[in-house]
């Protein structure tokens, strides 16, 4: 498995940086085009969205909007896998209550984790050294590949 791209970035705990992180996600999608036959515009949007949702959760729910904290984002791209890890410095938040069911359309909140889960193959949230990490994985193998995914 060849490591194609690794991005490690630490940003202040402020929503104004969502745009920057989303843009980086779109640029990563550009690098993916050589290996994936999906709609380039759609893939760019999905990676932008996953990063935006995960970072907004870290800022608001884990780091409680504390301006002295940071969010650390790591994107790791191989020839057949995309890993996105978003590290917070807080007490964590519960993602288990947000399952795969479509959220009540009448509610004005609670769609973030649903969107992440819909667009990625696996989503885990666990404790780490200085806080928690939201770990998201997507297989980039096309339907023509015949080997299985771990």
């Amino acid at each position: 498995m060849k490591n194609l791209l690794e991005v490690d970035i630490k940003v202040p705990n402020q929503t104004k940086y969502l745009r920057l992180i989303g843009q980086i996600g779109e640029d990563v999608a550009g690098a993916l085009q050589k290996f994936n036959d999906s709609d380039p515009e759609e893939l760019a949007y999905h990676i932008n969205l996953v990063l935006t949702e995960a970072m907004a959760n870290a800022i608001k729910h884990a780091n409680k909007n504390d301006p002295n904290k940071d969010v650390h984002i790591s994107i790791n791209l191989t020839d057949d896998q995309l890993w996105i890890r978003v590290y917070d410095q807080g007490q964590g938040f519960d993602i288990s209550s947000a399952d795969m069911q479509t959220p009540d359309p009448e509610l004005d909140h609670g769609r973030g984790v649903f969107l992440i889960r819909s667009l990625m193959d696996s989503v885990k949230y666990r404790r780490c050294k200085k806080g928690n990490v939201l770990e998201m994985y997507k297989s980039l193998r096309t339907s023509c590949d015949n080997h299985s995914v771990e």
Partner: peptide, 16 residues
Amino acid sequence: RFIDSSGLGALVSGFK
């Protein structure tokens, strides 16, 4: 060009 869950939520809030 881009909307996230917060943007959708703001529209739902306005709708209600």
